[in-house]
Simulated assay, not measured.
Amino acid sequence: MSGSAKNKITSLQYILINTGMQVSVFFLALPRILFEEAGTDGWISLIICWFITVLASLAIIKVMSRQPEGTLLDLLTSYGGKWAGRAAAIALFLYLLYFAYSSLIQTTLITKEWLLPQTSAYLIILMLLIPTYVVAISGIRVIGRYAEITGLLSLWIPFVYLLPLKEAHWLHLLPIAGEGWRPISAGLPFGLYCFLGFATTFILYPYLQNKRQASKVITISNTLTLLLHLFVTMVCYVYFSPDEIATYNEPAINVLRVIEFKFVERIEVIFIALYLLIFSLGWIPALYMCAYCTNWLTGMQSERNHFRVLLLILAVGSYFYIPTLHQNENLERLFLRVGIGVEYAFPLLLLMCLWLLDRLSRRKNA
């Protein structure tokens, strides 16, 4: 990744990359997960998580504004030395690889379950990695354009989810906070899970064309994520009964079965096929930024070779092992704990450390 003008991304492209990572594959099971933890008050947990996410995102912007033309790796190198930068590069690489792998496997399992039941999971992964290579090999700006196209082609999705509301039962939402705040607080960790992905700002920040609007842009991105998650969750809550919603693994898909057209028999199958574009935003940017981290460690001038090696490792590794649905759920729960530490705790801790360093340097200079 180069800092040249040809690799700059617009504010809209950043919003769509970030939101795409947050609402990719993970939102399909979100209504069920929130219901299991917080009941029909899970939507309140989402709003609280949005507020926490905005604070953490603004902390990242505040940190990155100290070195506008560099990434987190450059910032930590200048403050803590080369070993601090290298440690951060390795940690960020592992985290983004975990993020991308979890998204890719979940997409593969959903595709196999709903679209290609007779096709092996390994072949599905290969078919997904081919367009991944085509899109990401040209750089972050092309990924931004891909996110724009994906966003444009996905504008119809919210309107489809309006159709089940004709059979909605709004009384399912009552009473609000009927069991107090304990269930709502229990849903917070899983609400934070659906906002994970904004830590890519640590790498994307220097490639924003207009850094002065970075705080506004990241707030808009997280707000868009909230609205999408909140909308789909509320539709599932008012359509399914409280006893029914927990029986579906991906209620955001099952709710579409109520939709019937004379020319389409199973709308949910078409939905998943078209939604694969949004699924791909869960791993394409993450894998490219993994290549950036390894490229930064080696000091080379291009991420292409690193990206090719990374895809080759994924393809060969998937031939020998692919997690089952249950194993992938365990991986996601572990990823939730790691993600909260990386994307929420670390930015706030780093901001405090930088503030203390500034205070100490001022005292020495006084």
Rank of each mutant, 00 (worst) to 15 (best):
W50H: 09
R145T: 02
S215V: 00
I124T: 05
N330R: 15
E69T: 10
L30C: 11
A87W: 06
E303Y: 13
S102N: 15
E268Y: 08
H229M: 14
L163P: 01
L192T: 05
W50P: 03
M289E: 10
N222G: 04
T53E: 01
N210P: 01
L349Q: 07
I48Y: 01
E69D: 15
Y321D: 03
K8F: 11
T111E: 14
L128H: 02
K112H: 14
L188G: 02
L228F: 14
L256P: 06
F279D: 04
W114A: 01
V309F: 13
A366P: 04
A88E: 12
F240S: 06
S103K: 02
L16D: 07
T223Q: 04
Q301N: 15
G178S: 13
A29F: 09
K216C: 00
P347I: 11
G3W: 06
L123C: 04
E36I: 14
V316G: 01
L73A: 09
Y292N: 12
V235I: 10
Y248W: 13
Q301M: 09
K211V: 10
L104N: 06
L297H: 03
T298F: 06
I52M: 12
A56W: 10
L310S: 08
I313V: 14
Q327M: 14
V258G: 09
D358Q: 12
T219G: 01
N254Q: 14
F198G: 10
S241L: 11
W83Q: 11
V25N: 05
L28S: 03
I203G: 02
A87Y: 05
A366N: 13
Q106K: 10
I203Y: 10
V342H: 10
L55G: 00
T19L: 14
L297P: 06
A345H: 05
L129G: 07
L311A: 06
I9E: 05
L126K: 02
E260W: 15
R212P: 07
Y321R: 08
L226K: 01
T294S: 13
I44L: 00
A56V: 03
A91V: 15
T10W: 04
Q213G: 07
V23Y: 11
L109K: 02
T200W: 00
L311Q: 03
Y344R: 02
L188E: 09
F195H: 03
I149G: 05
Q22C: 08
G282N: 06
A5I: 12
K62R: 12
V135A: 11
I267E: 04
P251F: 08
